[in-house]
Lab assay of single mutants.
Amino acid sequence: GPMASDKRPRTAFTAEQLQRLKAEFQTNRYLTEQRRQSLAQELGLNESQIKIWFQNKRAK
């Protein structure tokens, strides 16, 4: 629909990254900035991508 703007492409996470994020989520529903930074480095992701993933996951 018209609401779907092309400005922010959805990140396609790899299965491996998703597995890691899910495991982290089961341990911590809320990430500290430090955890998020190390996860971002570990997974080669953007911190904001991880932050948003957690927000979306909590919203469900």
Score class of each variant (00 low, 15 high):
1 G>E: 14
1 G>L: 08
1 G>R: 09
1 G>H: 10
2 P>A: 13
2 P>I: 11
2 P>E: 13
2 P>K: 03
2 P>H: 12
2 P>V: 10
2 P>L: 08
3 M>S: 11
3 M>A: 06
3 M>E: 11
4 A>R: 03
4 A>Q: 14
4 A>T: 11
4 A>K: 09
4 A>C: 12
4 A>P: 14
5 S>M: 04
5 S>I: 06
5 S>P: 10
5 S>N: 10
5 S>L: 03
5 S>A: 12
6 D>V: 08
6 D>C: 11
6 D>F: 01
6 D>G: 10
6 D>W: 01
6 D>R: 02
7 K>I: 05
8 R>H: 08
8 R>Q: 06
8 R>W: 07
8 R>G: 13
8 R>A: 09
8 R>Y: 12
9 P>M: 03
9 P>H: 05
9 P>E: 07
9 P>L: 04
10 R>H: 15
10 R>A: 15
10 R>S: 15
10 R>K: 15
10 R>N: 15
10 R>Q: 15
10 R>Y: 15
11 T>P: 15
11 T>E: 15
11 T>F: 14
11 T>C: 11
11 T>S: 14
11 T>A: 11
11 T>L: 13
11 T>K: 15
12 A>W: 15
12 A>P: 15
12 A>V: 12
12 A>R: 15
12 A>Q: 15
12 A>I: 08
12 A>M: 07
13 F>P: 03
13 F>R: 01
13 F>E: 01
14 T>V: 02
14 T>M: 02
14 T>D: 04
14 T>S: 10
15 A>C: 08
15 A>I: 11
15 A>P: 13
15 A>Y: 12
16 E>R: 13
16 E>F: 14
16 E>A: 12
16 E>M: 11
16 E>L: 14
16 E>G: 07
17 Q>K: 04
17 Q>C: 04
17 Q>H: 04
17 Q>L: 04
17 Q>P: 00
18 L>Q: 06
18 L>W: 05
18 L>E: 06
18 L>R: 15
18 L>T: 08
19 Q>H: 08
19 Q>P: 01
19 Q>Y: 06
19 Q>L: 09
20 R>P: 00
20 R>Q: 06
20 R>N: 02
21 L>N: 01
22 K>Q: 08
22 K>D: 04
22 K>P: 00
22 K>C: 10
22 K>V: 07
22 K>I: 10
23 A>N: 09
23 A>Y: 11
24 E>K: 01
24 E>W: 02
25 F>A: 02
25 F>D: 00
25 F>C: 02
25 F>V: 03
25 F>Q: 01
26 Q>N: 10
26 Q>M: 10
26 Q>E: 12
26 Q>H: 12
26 Q>Y: 09
27 T>W: 08
27 T>R: 13
27 T>G: 09
27 T>S: 14
27 T>E: 13
28 N>L: 03
28 N>F: 04
29 R>L: 04
30 Y>Q: 08
30 Y>G: 04
30 Y>S: 06
30 Y>L: 06
30 Y>T: 11
30 Y>N: 08
31 L>N: 02
31 L>M: 08
32 T>V: 03
32 T>L: 03
32 T>I: 03
32 T>H: 05
33 E>H: 14
33 E>I: 12
33 E>M: 11
33 E>Q: 11
33 E>A: 15
33 E>W: 06
33 E>F: 11
34 Q>K: 09
34 Q>Y: 09
34 Q>R: 09
34 Q>L: 08
35 R>G: 05
35 R>F: 03
35 R>P: 02
35 R>H: 08
35 R>W: 04
36 R>Q: 14
36 R>L: 14
36 R>W: 04
36 R>Y: 09
36 R>A: 13
37 Q>Y: 14
37 Q>V: 09
37 Q>E: 05
38 S>T: 15
38 S>H: 08
38 S>R: 07
38 S>K: 11
39 L>Y: 00
39 L>T: 00
39 L>H: 00
39 L>K: 00
40 A>T: 02
40 A>G: 04
40 A>Y: 01
40 A>Q: 03
41 Q>C: 09
41 Q>G: 07
41 Q>H: 12
41 Q>F: 09
41 Q>S: 12
42 E>G: 03
42 E>N: 03
42 E>I: 07
42 E>A: 05
43 L>T: 08
43 L>R: 00
43 L>K: 00
43 L>I: 06
44 G>F: 05
44 G>Q: 11
44 G>Y: 04
44 G>K: 13
44 G>L: 05
44 G>C: 06
44 G>V: 04
45 L>V: 12
45 L>R: 02
45 L>Y: 01
45 L>M: 07
45 L>P: 00
46 N>Y: 13
46 N>L: 12
46 N>H: 08
46 N>I: 08
46 N>S: 13
47 E>H: 04
47 E>P: 09
47 E>Y: 03
47 E>D: 07
47 E>W: 03
47 E>S: 08
47 E>Q: 10
47 E>A: 10
48 S>P: 04
48 S>D: 07
48 S>C: 10
48 S>K: 14
48 S>F: 13
48 S>A: 11
49 Q>W: 07
49 Q>S: 12
49 Q>T: 13
49 Q>F: 06
49 Q>N: 06
49 Q>L: 12
49 Q>V: 14
50 I>D: 00
50 I>P: 00
50 I>Y: 01
50 I>Q: 00
50 I>W: 01
50 I>H: 00
50 I>K: 01
50 I>T: 01
51 K>G: 07
51 K>S: 07
51 K>R: 10
51 K>D: 10
52 I>F: 05
52 I>E: 10
52 I>P: 01
52 I>N: 13
52 I>Y: 07
53 W>P: 00
53 W>T: 00
54 F>L: 02
54 F>T: 01
54 F>D: 00
54 F>A: 01
54 F>N: 01
54 F>Y: 04
54 F>W: 12
55 Q>V: 07
55 Q>D: 07
56 N>S: 07
56 N>I: 14
56 N>Y: 15
56 N>W: 15
56 N>C: 10
56 N>L: 14
56 N>R: 15
56 N>H: 15
56 N>A: 08
57 K>W: 06
57 K>D: 02
57 K>P: 03
57 K>S: 08
58 R>D: 04
58 R>N: 11
58 R>K: 05
58 R>W: 07
58 R>V: 07
58 R>Y: 05
59 A>T: 09
59 A>Q: 10
59 A>D: 10
59 A>K: 15
59 A>N: 13
60 K>E: 05
60 K>W: 04
60 K>H: 11
60 K>I: 08
60 K>V: 08
60 K>S: 09
